[in-house]
Write a protein that binds this DNA or RNA. Structure first.
Lengths: 159, 159
DNA sequence: TTATTAAATTATAATCATTCTAATTAAACG
DNA sequence: CGTTTAATTAGAATGATTATAATTTAATAA
């Protein structure tokens, strides 16, 4: 477990190392991401959260920051088919090693904190000559009686 | 291997069985999908192809038809993160039993005609109590020296 | 510290995919 | 064939995202 401040520092360093500038807006955005590590926030969500503490920030800046962080592989851009991109931090200890379970009733997303695809990636390489650099694995379905954690409260109000 | 006409007939029947009408526009759209079974076309792509033979058709109709077919599980709506939804037929013999390899250089998509997730779906059920009804598995990467089939022509012109 | 320079931000407009609306047309079914 | 109801059309509206031009700021060196 690395502290928020340490992670922030490391992210800033990576940014500067690649020739980008470290700005207060970018720091504010990264801070929000650090505090919502696996919330799958949309750009608009991030924008609203950043705005609470930095009201002058513009939406376009948040979009550009998220784009930059994605480029630096510091955040992961996802797409659950609801028309908006979603963003999560990609911290050292869980680098694209997670999958998603998406509730088809309420849209709630939960993570599987594991990499179940190591074997399959080798198989892809072997059988198709395809070198995998990343993957995306989402399961769509429902939790048993929709009573699992976060999902519950949404599903109950949904139907 | 079922003929295009037979598949079309079956699709129309399913449509009517659910109380929807069979129209020439819908038929034209389905015909295009049947002839491009695994091309991952965007709504715009489908629209242009349908328009060649049915110039009066409107874009909204194509969108509505694709939406309807998705609802009937006759087509699969996909999302490769490039801002557009893509649609493929979901014929009997390959019902959501395929995965994707997406070239990170040119964006070309190839399919793996197999279901590699049967075991993992059981594991999800067992370990998380999540009942999987569908899944999405995409690998992002490159083909060895980018010389594999379709990918080649795009990659060469890309860089 | 201050000046310089290039990059970043802001506010706003533009764009692109997708959906909605109102009027018109066409399927289905008796 | 007429009725009913859904589907289509054309065009406007929406919502997410990106581009633009003017202004500000961070990094760097004098």
């Amino acid at each position: 477990m690395i502290s928020v401040e340490e992670q922030l520092k490391s992210m800033k360093q990576q940014m500067i190392a690649k020739g980008y500038k470290s700005t207060v807006q970018r720091e504010a955005t990264m801070r929000v991401l650090l505090e919502h590590e696996r919330d799958h926030m949309s750009a608009e969500d991030v924008y609203m959260r950043v705005k609470e503490r930095f009201p002058e920030i513009g939406l376009a800046t948040v979009y550009r920051t998220l784009e930059l962080l994605t480029e630096l592989h510091l955040v992961e851009k996802m797409n659950f088919g609801d028309g908006v991109s979603r963003f999560d931090l990609r911290s050292k200890d869980r680098e694209h090693m997670h999958h998603h379970m998406i509730c088809s009733i309420c849209g709630e997303v939960e993570e599987i904190q594991d990499d179940w695809l190591i074997e399959l990636e080798q198989r892809v390489k072997r059988e198709y000559g395809f070198n995998v650099s990343d993957h995306r694995l989402d399961f769509i379905g429902t939790f048993s009686s929709c009573k699992h954690g976060e999902c519950r409260k949404h599903c109950e109000t949904a139907s």
